[in-house]
Amino acid sequence: MRDGGGSRPRAGAPIAALAGLVLLVLLGGWLAAAPFALGEQRPGAAWDAATCTDVATGGALAAVALAGLLAYLAAALSWLARYGRR
């Protein structure tokens, strides 16, 4: 991809990588909700080890992926605000 004004090559945005992070966020959400969605965990009953593991791991996965996504956007916007006019 080249800009219109010159022949300088432009590195494209890592859209696929960002999409991967978004999918990881969705996977984390699914993992946290899976015990309840699949009926393994009865409402009101004490959580077993599998439910605790799925909820904790899914929440952590979603949090990490979301944090990476927000950090990427923050860094990109910061660079754009500082050097984007040049």
């Binding site: 494209g12 945005a13 990109a76 754009l80 050097y83 006019r85």
Partner: peptide, 9 residues
């Protein structure tokens, strides 16, 4: 010409 954050400077 405007640069985006994903442009190589």
């Amino acid at each position: 010409m405007t640069n985006t954050a994903t442009d190589a400077p």
